[in-house]
Write a protein that binds this DNA or RNA. Structure first.
Length: 674
DNA sequence: GTAGGGTTAG
C-alpha cells in the first residue's frame, strides 16, 4: 500500500515509532489527504492510535494541512475519548480559519460544558472566531471567562482582545485593554494601529505612533505599513517621507507589503509620479500592488492612465480581483468608458468574482454615470447584501439621470428596509427633488433631515435647496434662502443661483450673484458666460458684449474642454484645437466633411460659442474645432455606419455642439450620438 | 496562539 505514495516514502513509515517528534515528520512529508490516510491506517494497525501524543499530532496535521475541510479532523476528534485542551485548541483554530468560526464557538461552549479547562492558548483562538463573526457579545463573554481563568494579563490574550474589540467596532474598548496592559510589546501597538485603521481613525494611528516614539518603543515593518497607510489617508506626506527616509537609512528590507504601502502613501498624498517610480522599481508586484497603483491614478484624476495600467497588469498575467475591479470601474465611470466597464462586468461574471457590497456599488455607480440606469437597477436588485453606499449610489444615479421621482421611491424604500440615510444620501434625495421640480418635497426633506435624522445640513445641502428653488423659478426665494443661511455661502452657492437666473432671465439677482462670486474667488469663465447670456436673453446686447470684453481683458483662464471617445476598449482624448493626436490630418479632414454635411442639413454655426480671442471671420472654424466635434469626427472615421457613438466630456456641451450633434444624429449615415 | 499593503455614494 505504501508503495503507491510518491511524496512520502523517503523513510519507512515505521520510523514514526523511533523518531522523537512524529509531528514534524507528518507535517513535513504529508501533502495530501491520501498521505494522511495512510498514516492514519498505519497508526491503527500498529495501535499507535492509542498514544495520545501521536493522535493529537495527527489531529493537528489534518486540521491545519488539509485545505478547506475539517471533516477528517472532526472524525479523528470525535474518536478521541476525552480530548484535552490542546485537542480542543487545534479544532477551534482549524474551524475558525477553514470552516466556520461559528462552529468554533460552539465547540468552545462544548469544551466548557464538558469541564475541560481552557488554557492560555484557547483564548486567542476563540477570540479570533468572535472577531471574524464580529460577535461582540460572545467576545465579551469570552473576555469574562478570560478574567475568571486568570489569563487577563497574558500578553497574547490581551493582544487578541484588542483585535477582537476593534474588529467588532469597539475601538475605544480595545484602547482600554491596551492602556491597561502592564507590558506592551510591538504586537500590542500594532494591534491597536490596525484597530484604528479598521475604524478609519487615521489621525489616531499617527497620534499613537508619535506616542510610541516618545516612549522610545521600537517599531517594525508592520508598524510602518499601518502608519504609511494612515499617512496616505491623511495626506500626511511629511510623516510618510520620514518613514521612507527611515527605511532607507536603516536598510530595512523592502518587502512587497511595505513597498505597496509606500506606493499607496505617495499616490494618496498627490505624488502619483513618485508612486509610479517606486512601483516600477519593485522587483515583484502582486494584485495588491497593482490595485494600489491603479487606484492611485484614479484618485489623482488620471483615469486614463489607470486603465492603461490595468491593461499592462494583464500583460503581466496578474489576475485582477474584486478590489482591482472597483478602481477600474471607477475609472470607466469617470471616462464614460462604457465598453470597457461592460467588459469588466462580464469578466466579473465569467471569473465568478464575488459581487461584494463595494464591487456592486461600484458597478451601480459606473452604469449610472454612463447613463445606463436600467443596468444599475438590475445590479442593485441582484445584490445579496447592500449598505447605505449602495442605496445612495442608486439614488444619486437615478437623480442625475433625470429620474427624480424614481430616486425618491428608493429613498423611501431604503428606510422601509431599515437602512438609515446619511448626509450623502440626502444630497442625492435633494438632487432628485430638484430634477423632478418637487419644491415642497425638497423643503420638507431638508427640514426632516436635521429634525428626524439628526444630520446637520452642510453647504452642499444648502446648495441643493438653492438649486431646487432656483430651477423652479423661485429666484427671489432662493436669494432670501441664501441670505438666511446660518453658514457662509460659498462661490458654488452663488454660481448655482447665477445659473438659475440665466434660465429664468433674472438680471438683478444675476448681477448680484456674479458680484458675490467675484468677492469670494476669481470668477470662472463660465460665470462670465452666464452673466453675458443673461444680458443677451433680455436684449441687453451692449452689456453682454461688455462682459465678454471684460473677460478677455482680464485674461480669464478657461478650463480646457475635453472630450473622450472609447473605440475598441481604448479611450481617446481630445482637446479643443487638438494638435496632439496621431491621426491629426485625417481628423481635421473628417471634421470639415462633417460640417459640410450638416450645413446642408440646416446647421447654422453659433459664433457666440467661439473662443473669445478668435477673429470675427475665424469664429466658424473655431467652433468647428471644439473637442467634441473632433471626437465625433474621429468616431465617424473609425466606425462603420450605424454604430452608436458615445462621447463623454468634462464640461457642459455648448449650444453649437449641441445643435450640431442633433443634426449629425439624424444624418443619413445612420450614426447616432449619445 | 496575537499585528501588516489595495476598494464604494457627493
Amino acid at each position: 500500500m505504501l508503495s503507491t505514495v510518491t511524496v512520502f516514502p523517503a523513510k519507512p513509515i515505521t520510523a514514526i515509532t523511533t523518531i522523537e517528534n512524529p509531528k514534524t515528520l507528518i507535517l513535513q512529508q504529508c501533502k495530501t489527504s491520501k498521505d494522511l490516510n495512510q498514516i492514519h491506517a498505519h497508526l491503527i494497525k500498529t495501535r499507535l492510535i492509542h498514544n495520545r501524543a501521536v493522535t493529537e499530532n495527527l489531529l493537528e496535521s489534518t486540521a491545519i494541512l488539509l485545505p478547506n475541510t475539517m471533516d477528517y479532523a472532526l472524525s479523528i476528534f470525535d474518536n478521541i475519548g476525552k480530548p484535552d485542551s490542546s485537542a480542543y485548541n487545534v479544532m477551534i483554530r482549524g474551524l475558525t480559519y477553514k470552516q466556520s468560526p461559528h462552529e468554533a464557538i460552539i465547540l468552545f461552549k462544548k469544551m466548557l460544558e464538558t469541564s475541560v479547562e481552557p488554557d492560555e492558548f484557547t483564548f486567542p483562538c476563540v477570540l479570533k472566531a468572535c472577531s471574524r463573526l464580529r460577535a461582540l457579545s460572545e467576545g465579551e463573554q469570552v473576555h469574562a471567562h478570560i478574567l475568571k481563568c486568570g489569563f487577563g494579563s497574558v500578553e497574547f490574550v490581551e493582544n487578541t482582545l484588542i483585535h477582537m474589540y476593534a474588529n467588532c467596532g469597539r475601538v475605544e474598548v480595545a484602547r482600554r485593554v491596551f492602556d491597561g496592559m502592564s507590558e506592551r510589546g510591538v504586537v500590542a501597538w500594532n494591534s491597536m494601529f490596525s484597530g484604528y485603521m479598521r475604524s478609519g481613525c487615521w489621525e489616531e494611528v499617527v497620534k499613537l505612533f508619535h506616542r510610541m516614539r516618545e516612549l522610545g518603543v521600537g517599531f517594525d515593518e508592520v508598524t510602518m505599513i499601518s502608519v504609511l497607510t494612515s499617512c496616505g489617508r491623511l495626506a500626511d506626506l511629511e510623516l510618510g517621507e520620514w518613514i521612507n527616509g527611515y527605511i532607507e537609512a536603516n536598510g530595512i528590507k523592502k518587502s512587497l507589503a511595505l513597498m505597496t504601502s509606500l506606493v499607496d502613501m505617495y499616490a494618496k498624498c498627490g505624488e502619483v509620479d513618485t508612486a509610479r517610480r517606486l512601483f516600477d522599481q519593485m522587483d515583484q508586484r502582486d494584485v495588491v500592488a497593482w490595485s494600489a497603483m491603479i487606484s492611485g491614478f484614479c484618485q489623482a484624476n488620471r483615469c486614463r492612465e489607470a486603465l492603461d495600467l490595468f491593461n499592462e497588469m494583464q500583460k503581466y498575467n496578474v489576475d485582477p480581483n474584486e478590489v482591482t475591479m472597483v478602481s477600474v470601474l471607477n475609472a470607466c465611470a469617470v471616462l464614460g468608458a462604457l465598453e470597457t466597464g461592460k467588459w469588466v462586468h462580464f469578466y466579473i461574471k465569467k471569473r465568478k468574482l464575488k459581487l461584494t457590497v463595494t464591487l456592486g456599488t461600484a458597478l451601480i455607480d459606473f452604469y449610472a454615470k454612463c447613463g445606463s440606469v436600467d443596468s444599475s437597477i438590475e445590479i442593485f436588485s441582484k445584490m445579496a447584501s447592500k449598505n447605505v453606499f449602495t442605496w445612495t449610489a442608486l439614488i444619486q444615479g437615478l437623480a442625475s439621470n433625470g429620474q427624480g421621482k424614481r430616486a425618491l421611491e428608493f429613498f423611501y424604500l431604503m428606510q422601509e428596509k431599515n437602512f438609515e440615510p446619511n448626509d450623502v444620501t440626502f444630497i442625492g434625495a435633494l438632487a432628485a427633488c430638484s430634477h423632478a421640480g418637487l419644491v415642497d418635497e425638497g423643503q420638507s426633506l431638508f427640514v426632516s433631515m436635521s429634525k428626524d435624522f439628526d444630520i446637520e445640513p452642510r453647504i452642499e445641502h444648502y446648495g441643493c435647496m438653492v438649486d431646487i428653488l432656483g430651477r423652479a423659478g423661485l429666484i427671489e426665494e432662493a436669494y432670501q434662502f441664501i441670505k438666511n443661511m446660518p453658514i457662509q455661502p460659498n462661490a458654488v452657492i452663488w454660481r448655482t443661483l447665477l445659473a438659475s437666473c440665466k434660465a429664468h432671465k433674472n438680471v438683478k439677482i444675476g448681477e448680484e450673484s456674479f458680484r458675490r462670486i467675484t468677492i469670494l474667488e476669481p470668477a470662472h469663465s463660465g460665470d462670465y458666460i452666464l452673466l453675458s447670456n443673461i444680458y443677451a436673453s433680455v436684449g441687453r446686447c451692449e452689456d453682454a458684449l461688455k462682459v465678454r470684453r471684460q473677460m478677455r481683458e482680464e485674461r480669464i483662464k478657461k478650463t480646457p474642454g475635453c472630450s473622450l471617445i472609447e473605440l475598441d476598449g481604448v479611450v481617446h482624448e481630445f482637446f479643443s484645437e487638438d494638435d496632439g493626436h496621431a491621426h491629426l490630418k485625417e481628423i481635421y479632414g473628417g471634421v470639415e466633411d462633417m460640417m459640410k454635411h450638416i450645413k446642408s442639413a440646416g446647421y447654422v454655426p453659433n459664433p457666440a460659442d467661439a473662443r473669445l480671442d478668435a477673429e470675427e471671420d475665424d469664429k466658424e472654424a473655431s467652433v468647428s474645432h471644439h473637442s467634441e466635434k473632433l471626437a465625433i469626427a474621429y468616431g465617424l472615421i473609425r466606425t462603420p455606419p450605424g454604430t452608436t457613438i458615445r462621447i463623454s466630456k468634462n464640461l457642459r456641451v455648448c449650444t453649437d455642439c449641441h445643435n450640431a450633434t442633433k443634426i449629425i444624429s439624424k444624418n443619413k449615415r445612420g450614426h447616432r450620438i449619445l
